[in-house]
């Protein structure tokens, strides 16, 4: 038994190394390929470029519309995250700290939304937006993003606010603060980790979001990065310009990479917080 165990963990370790090396390598490979010419790429996928083709990036940024897509993504995600925080933070605070009738029901109502796949509500939602003329607009997309992010964000923040002790509020009340002042002056600053975690999580999922963006934008100058990248891939079928496509991938991944390198620990901890807390 012991030998089986030893071999298994040894093999497992090798597998782990292999997997990680592969992941690292594939990303580096994309970056290298983005700097080649198409002929170099197809001639020898493993070789290095003779001259670094930064022109691929210039090409994909200007003539392939990616800069517009990038701008759209930045605007949409920024506004979405801000609005999500504005409406979810006070709501989670009140749900977790103030004991009012119907609190449990409301909390359940909000977080149960996590079990509902957005495909269930996609079509009716589309037509609601259609009737108010908000389809094919970036503003409409922001509203949709905000609405669909509510369940998880409230779930995340609820869990956090519950861990704060109530003595602080009681002390603030004794000192003469109104409840609203208590929220803004004391609890909100304390709730910063939750706010930051929620922002990061929403940023990541919305930056990479595809289906909703595809449904709610139709003109290609309104596309976000995900949809734009996909459109790029489609057009590449005709032009065969794979290296530009890889340059596009690099452009799309870089913001995620930066955020991830700086904040990976917080991201992982925040995401597993909900799953692991019992």
């Amino acid at each position: 038994m012991k030998i089986v165990g030893k071999i298994t963990s040894w093999l497992g370790k090798i597998f782990l190394y292999f997997w990680c090396i592969f992941s690292l390598f594939s990303l580096i490979w994309v970056a290298i390929s983005a700097l080649k010419t198409n002929r170099e790429l197809f001639g020898n996928p493993w070789g290095m470029a003779e001259k670094l083709q930064f022109s691929n990036f210039a090409k994909v940024w200007s003539s392939y519309n990616l800069s517009q897509n990038f701008y759209n993504s930045v605007v949409v995600v920024a506004f979405s995250v801000i609005f999500i925080l504005i409406i979810c933070t006070p709501a989670s605070y009140v749900l977790s700290r103030v004991n009012f009738r119907g609190r449990g029901f409301l909390s359940f109502l909000f977080t149960a939304g996590m079990g509902i796949p957005y495909q269930l509500l996609l079509i009716p939602l589309y037509f609601i937006m259609f009737r108010v003329g908000l389809t094919n607009t970036l503003g409409g997309l922001v509203i949709v993003y905000v609405a669909l992010s509510i369940p998880f964000t409230i779930f995340l923040m609820l869990g956090f606010f519950r861990t704060l002790p109530s003595v602080l509020e009681e002390a603030a009340l004794i000192d003469g603060c109104t409840p609203i002042q208590t929220f803004f002056r004391i609890m909100l600053p304390l709730g910063r980790p939750a706010v930051i975690t929620a922002s990061i999580f929403n940023f990541l999922s919305l930056w990479n979001e595809f289906l909703l963006a595809l449904v709610f934008t139709n003109d290609d100058w309104k596309f976000t990065l995900s949809v734009g990248l996909n459109a790029l891939q489609t057009s590449m079928q005709y032009t065969g310009d794979w290296v530009a496509l890889f340059a596009g991938i690099v452009v799309v991944i870089i913001p995620t990479l930066i955020v991830y390198l700086l904040l990976s620990r917080r991201i992982i901890e925040g995401l597993t917080l909900g799953a692991v807390k019992e």
């Binding site: 504005i86 409406i87 979810c88 006070p90 709501a91 605070y93 009140v94 749900l95 409301l106 109502l109 909000f110 939304g113 509902i116 269930l120 509500l121 996609l122 079509i123 009716p124 939602l125 609601i128 509203i143 949709v144 905000v146 609405a147 669909l148 509510i150 369940p151 409230i154 609203i180 929220f183």
Partner: peptide, 19 residues
Amino acid sequence: ILFLAPAFIIYVILFLFPS
């Protein structure tokens, strides 16, 4: 009421109702 209203309204109109 003030703190819950925005989230609740949006959630009901754009999430629960379409579902």
